[in-house]
């Protein structure tokens, strides 16, 4: 296919048509990113449980709805299931002394079996919006966007409140300086477990919403969720700092995390529109996240590094 033919085959209209769906899915990923934000930024740990707990959320939601449970109740149970997954990682870490990354990997790994059990040993379970009353669905994208944005707004408000309370402050202090926190009477082990539990509860909520939106739960729907979450957090931070600079407060940071999720997904929609192989999407995402993670470091390096001295030939006074 010639380049001209390739560009001729791309239709701007089609891209625009796909954007709303991208926003809706992006919002759901943005909610998950809020969960990732708790562990990655506030607790300063990389929690790999989320790949499993996202699917758990989806599986629990779909199975309960299929069993006749109202969608909101199914989501609530999904959140509890996510909390339990986070609790598991937290206890493996604090009570059994397993490094947190490994603890997350272990939980995530075991959740694959657990999720299969939840879905009755099926790798895929469909839930039709025609037969059941769902909170959102890709059949009605505008309503889904509205619902997603509403849930995001509520979550941002709850986060803003919670992390301003004594307990929320103690959780943030644990991530910022755990030795100090201990000296000030904060049980840092409990705080880590609590943070991991809340985080995975929110990730499961997001998984539950995603399964309703796409109309099915899939055993692999959470694969790479952590990377997407990190991408959203980082894109949100970079954008927030660029737009608001010093005025970026906690509420802004949280909102931009959700927006980061939306932006990420719009990029995905664009990439797919460009007819790039969707199997390369994970590679593409990883490269983006690596780039964004590297930027602050490289910027620092460009100001002061040994290689810079080498380029200049010698130190000024030599």
């Amino acid at each position: 296919m010639s380049i001209v033919a390739y560009f001729a085959s791309l239709s701007i209209l089609k891209l625009i048509k796909n954007m709303p769906g991208g926003v809706a899915q992006g919002l759901i990923w943005g909610l998950m990113a809020l969960g990732v934000y708790i562990t990655f930024r506030l607790l300063d740990v990389a929690d790999l449980t989320v790949d499993g707990s996202f699917t758990t959320g989806g599986a629990v939601t779909v199975m309960l709805i299929l069993a006749g449970c109202p969608a909101w109740l199914a989501l609530l149970v999904a959140v509890i299931a996510g909390v339990l997954a986070g609790l598991c990682t937290g206890l493996l870490h604090t009570k059994l002394g397993i490094p947190v990354i490994l603890a997350g990997i272990l939980t995530q790994f075991s959740l694959y079996s657990v999720n299969l059990h939840i879905m009755g040993m099926a790798a895929n379970k469909a839930v039709s919006v025609d037969k059941f009353s769902l909170i959102l669905s890709s059949r009605n994208i505008p309503a889904s966007i509205l619902t997603g944005a509403l849930i995001a707004a509520v979550l941002v408000a709850v986060f803003y409140w919670y992390f301003g309370t004594e307990q929320g402050s103690a959780l943030r202090a644990t991530g910022s300086n755990s030795a100090m926190s201990s000296a000030l009477g904060i049980n840092v082990g409990s705080m880590k477990v609590l943070g991991l539990a809340i985080s995975n509860g929110i990730v499961a909520l997001s998984g539950g919403l995603m399964s309703q939106y796409q109309g099915f739960a899939d055993i692999n729907m959470g694969r790479g969720a952590i990377v997407i979450g990190l991408a959203a957090v980082i894109i949100g931070e970079v954008l927030g700092r660029a737009l608001l600079g010093k005025h970026l407060n906690f509420c802004g940071t949280l909102s931009f995390t959700v927006i980061g999720g939306v932006l990420y997904y719009l990029v995905v929609v664009t990439v797919l529109w460009l007819k790039l192989n969707s199997n390369d999407l994970k590679l593409f995402t990883a490269v983006i996240v690596a780039l964004f993670l590297a930027v602050p470091y490289l910027r620092e390096q460009s100001k002061s590094s040994f290689s810079r001295l080498k380029k200049k030939g010698a130190a000024p006074h030599a």
């Binding site: 309370t165 004594e166 000030l184």
Partner: peptide, 19 residues
Amino acid sequence: ENLALALRRGDRRGLRWGV
């Protein structure tokens, strides 16, 4: 926030405002 954490040294930390 640091001072508020220190003021509550050893106290139960609940859901009241942090500062």
